[in-house]
Amino acid sequence: MLVVLSLLVGIGLGVGLHPVVPPSWAPYLPMAVMAALDSVFGGLRARFEGTFNDRVFVISFLSNAILAALLVWAGTRLGVQEMEIAVVVVFGVRIFQNLAAIRRILFHA
């Protein structure tokens, strides 16, 4: 209940206030979002598997998001081309795995 409420409030804030990230930050926000999405799906999966731990969830959410953005930022500074791809591949694969696990639990398929 609380989670759904918070979700709606978050969407409401984003749509209502219409905040925009400055262009120099724009490449890093999608990375943080990818990491955050992965954490949330991971949390959902853990919930279904009965291994959910709120501390792990909160800490992994924050640290993954911040680290992903920082890593890409550092990568561009160091001249590593397309550091985003590493983040996209890693979190993309993990999101798919989490979704597959959730699907298996929900539909037994």
Partner: peptide, 18 residues
């Protein structure tokens, strides 16, 4: 955890806006 999920929703919409 609820706050964290709210934060995700917020980040998502901000990213879409951007």
């Amino acid at each position: 955890p609820a706050l964290v999920v709210g934060l995700l929703a917020f980040l998502l919409t901000v990213d879409l806006n951007t």
